[in-house]
């Protein structure tokens, strides 16, 4: 039996890698992928804790997270395509229209 601490540590590591990717990459698609990494890290934490607690709730929440991630990917990618069509770029630092 693997210690829960190690599972949570793995989850934390993947999450932190996702955060780092979101902060340092310019390509919004890759930033999006980093978000998926974070989501999965949290999913892993849910499943691990749920498994140790013996409840199904963690898995159900993961199920919902997956659904929401699918919806988010559909809409998010559509937005990225729209942005690319009008601005010809997917670099986050070129998309600074929302400023003073």
């Amino acid at each position: 039996m693997v210690s829960l601490s190690w599972l949570m540590a793995l989850s934390a590591a993947i999450f932190v890698i996702g955060v780092g990717g979101f902060l340092t990459r310019r390509n919004i698609l890759v930033m999006f992928m980093s978000i998926e990494l974070m989501l999965n890290a949290v999913n892993l934490a849910f499943v691990s804790l749920g498994s140790r607690l013996g409840t199904m709730d963690g898995q159900v929440i993961v199920f919902f997270v997956m659904t929401v991630a699918a919806a988010e990917a559909a809409v998010g990618l559509a937005i990225i395509i729209s942005i690319f069509r009008s601005r010809e770029t997917v670099h986050a630092d070129d998309l600074t229209l929302l400023k003073w």
Binding site: F22, L23, M31, A92, D93, T96, L98, W100
Partner: peptide, 17 residues
């Protein structure tokens, strides 16, 4: 305060972090 609004989502994310 508007100087803080760079429009760059990563800057906002950094503050969030």
């Amino acid at each position: 305060a508007r100087r803080a609004e760079t429009g760059n989502v990563q800057h906002y994310a950094f503050v969030y972090l």
